[in-house]
Design a binder for these strands. Structure first.
Lengths: 186, 203
DNA sequence: AACTTACTTTCTAAAGC
DNA sequence: GCTTTAAAAAGTAAGTT
């Protein structure tokens, strides 16, 4: 049994979406002066929402990428809001968008410090290069995620497609760290 | 010399010319960075493994050679930085670092963590510090490692701070800037590490 | 010396070079 | 591979005041 309960906080959710129809990005740029669209720099148009505070990339194919949400539900809501705004602005969008969660980034506090250098030698599929980055990069196989570990006992988990996978990753790692005596609690 | 590659060069494969070019660059680097035969042999060995795993497809050969060389230095604990290799072969540090991480991931290589003590001699000779100061800095770094003060910190910054602290203790007059320039870190980093070392080791 | 801003690492989709 | 977006972790860097 773990000695502490990790505090997990979802920081960013990336979702892909599609309205299944071609979009005229120049028309959107004309009706929404706040959007950013520089086709020679990047093919996607950037549509920002103040609430939920997100950035949605819209492509001519009608496919989208929504980033910045703090939860899966907020990401779905953000995409709905974007489509709603497009319609209110006179842009014809026939179908509602279909949404798929692609990535969830979470920050975690294990509540104890980590023996980083020992962890680097003990954990498989891990890389620790303090000249390049202060965290230890660990690739978990199941769930397939990547976790950054810091000596402070804080973590960053990324790559998960479902929120439960974030918790499974954290619990797997936490148990492993305790089993290998890599945790220090005060 | 370069046995690993020479075997391969006997057969005339399409990429042959690129390899010869890349390895002649490696030979030039050997002199420029004063590397041992062992490091060069290891570089060829690592590069050969990358080849066998098909990691070279669609990637720059010089970049992977540079990354293999850096990996060989790390593996043999030969104190050469990514910046040294980058300046020597004229490839961006970031690109070599990316190739190096690719090698670690795909070849499952485990590297010893850079020991800041290995940085002491190098910084000292550039800054012109005494043996006494070097010895004290090594002591400080040993203590710091014991209490894991080094976790997550740049070894060069730690070594520079330990040397600066050692200078202060021994009354050797060197400025933070002198040591910072010799180590390739900023004065701010030396100050931050210095503060941590002084407090934690109560010196 | 403090502040601020910014960059390092990880992930992921999108269309096109 | 790159381009763009978002976000956290902790360390390092650079420009101002």
């Amino acid at each position: 049994m773990p000695q502490t309960k990790p505090i997990v906080s979802v920081e960013n959710v990336v979702a892909s979406a599609s309205v299944d129809q071609k979009m005229d990005l120049n028309e959107i740029t004309r009706t929404f002066p706040d959007v950013e669209y520089h086709p020679d720099q990047f093919p996607g148009l950037v549509f920002r929402l103040k609430s939920p505070k997100t950035a949605t990339l819209i492509f001519t194919s009608g496919k989208m990428v929504c980033t910045g949400s703090k939860s899966e539900e907020m990401a779905r809501k953000a995409v709905k809001t974007v489509v709603q705004k497009l319609r209110k602005g006179g842009i014809k969008v026939k179908k509602d968008a279909t949404v798929e969660i692609q990535n969830i980034v979470a920050s975690i506090n294990l509540g104890g410090k980590i023996h980083l250098e020992q962890a680097a030698r003990t954990l498989p599929r891990s890389m620790y290069e303090p000249e390049q980055f202060p965290g230890l990069i660990h690739r978990m196989l199941d769930p397939k995620t990547v976790i950054l570990l810091f000596s402070s006992g804080k973590l960053v988990c990324t790559g998960a497609k479902k929120e439960p996978d974030v918790y499974r990753s954290v619990n797997n790692l936490h148990a492993l760290l305790e089993e290998k005596n890599l945790m220090i609690y005060d | 010399r370069l046995r690993t590659w020479d075997n391969r060069s006997q057969v005339h494969e399409p990429a042959d010319r690129n390899f010869r070019q890349a390895f002649s660059e490696l030979d030039r680097l050997k002199t420029k960075l004063a590397l041992s035969d062992a490091v060069i042999e290891k570089t060829a060995y690592i590069y050969r493994k990358a080849l066998d795993k098909g990691l070279v497809r669609g990637r720059s050969i010089p970049g992977l050679i540079a990354a293999s060389l850096y990996a060989a230095c790390r593996n043999t604990e030969t104190p050469r930085t990514l910046t040294d290799v980058s300046n020597g072969i004229n490839i961006k540090r970031k690109d070599i670092a990316r190739c190096y991480r690719l090698l670690l991931r795909e070849l499952d290589l485990k590297m010893p963590v850079v020991n800041p003590i290995k940085c002491v001699s190098r910084i000292s000779s550039i800054a012109g510090l005494s043996e006494k100061t070097k010895r004290k800095a090594v002591e400080i770094l040993d203590q710091a490692a014991k209490i894991e003060l080094s976790a997550g910190k740049d070894p060069m910054g730690l070594a520079a701070a330990a040397l600066y602290l050692s200078c202060v203790i021994n009354g050797e007059n060197k400025t933070q800037k002198d040591i910072a320039v010799s180590a390739g870190v900023t004065e701010v980093t030396i100050r931050n590490r210095y503060k941590g070392l002084k407090e934690a080791l109560e010196l």
